[in-house]
Design a protein around this nucleic acid. Structure first.
Length: 281
DNA sequence: ATTGGGACCTGCTCGC
DNA sequence: TGCGAGCAGGTCCCAA
């Protein structure tokens, strides 16, 4: 579900609600299959204990990860997986279905984490080594940062010969792109998702960089994409609106906005890809 | 080392 | 109406 624009929207919603607040603890819902939220952490009790009393200094985003910067120097990191939602409920809001955890704040207030498919994960990092503190997931460059230039994108693409689609989905190449925005960016750049990554010319790399940045910026402005089958909502339960601006994603069979050829789909890199078979080469 | 495929989960829609 | 198949915004792990 959530790609860069959705995570960024949630970050902005939550920032003013959590900055400066102190964590009281984390309550986890019972899970008969074991705690999938803390796959890489030994115990729920110690996770909550270590967070308790920590003040939240800032809330940042890196790729699709949300980073709570704590006064201990540690980071509470949340990845929403495919179906995770992080909600700051108003008074009296009923609990959502598939509630997995509640982050309680001192002095009242809390965040709810709901996730039907349980692919989301919580992490608690205490940065010892500098590098893991900065980039524990080995993520590639932030596509909306200034230093994401054609040179960086080009060198990431040149190292691989897998389909362009696969490389753009790889978070080590570029951080934050998922299935929706990869398809939309490739359409804008007129590049076929199966084009071998190392066979993109310099001018095309520049077009692709521009396409990635424009689609992500527009999607952030639109507060993300809530696809036809629902799913994504922001931190107060509202839908995004970028679904009305999608040009190929979930538009199979509809005419290409550029050349009227019906939009096609194909399975590439294990995901359904949407593209114009005529004007994307 | 890279790459593709399956696994991890649950819910929803579609066709028979 | 009921049931199985197929699909879904992500990532990890494992053989080739």
């Amino acid at each position: 579900m959530p790609e860069l624009p959705e995570v960024e929207t949630i970050r902005r919603d939550l920032l003013r609600r959590v900055r400066g607040r102190t964590i009281a603890g984390v309550d986890f819902s019972p899970d008969p299959r074991g705690c999938r939220l803390l796959r890489r952490y030994p115990s729920r009790a110690s996770f909550s204990r270590r967070l308790s009393g920590r003040k939240i200094l800032d809330l940042r985003r890196r790729g699709k990860y949300l980073l709570f910067v704590l006064d201990s120097g540690e980071f509470l990191i949340i990845h929403l997986g495919m179906s995770g939602r992080l909600l700051a409920p108003a008074a009296g809001d009923p609990a959502p279905s598939h509630l997995r955890a509640v982050l309680r704040l001192r002095g009242g207030g809390f965040l709810r984490y709901a996730d039907p498919r349980k692919f989301g994960e919580f992490y608690l990092f205490s940065p010892r080594r500098k590098e893991t503190a900065v980039n524990p997931f080995r993520l590639g460059p932030e596509p909306l940062d200034k230093d994401f230039d054609a040179g960086r994108l080009g060198s990431a693409l040149a190292r691989r010969r897998a389909p362009l689609k696969a490389v753009l989905l790889d978070q080590k190449a570029v951080a934050g792109l998922g299935n929706i925005y990869t398809d939309e960016a490739l359409f804008r750049a007129r590049l076929h998702p199966r084009r071998p990554s190392d066979r993109v010319k310099a001018a095309e790399v520049r077009d692709l960089r521009r396409a990635i940045r424009s689609v992500l910026r527009e999607a952030v402005r639109a507060r993300g994409t809530t696809a036809e089958d629902g799913g994504y909502q922001d931190a107060v339960g509202r839908n995004g609106s970028f679904q009305f601006r999608l040009r190929v994603y979930q538009r199979k069979g509809e005419p290409c906005p550029r050349c009227r050829t019906p939009i096609a789909t194909a399975r590439i890199a294990g995901r359904t890809s949407h593209f114009c078979p005529r004007c994307q080469t």
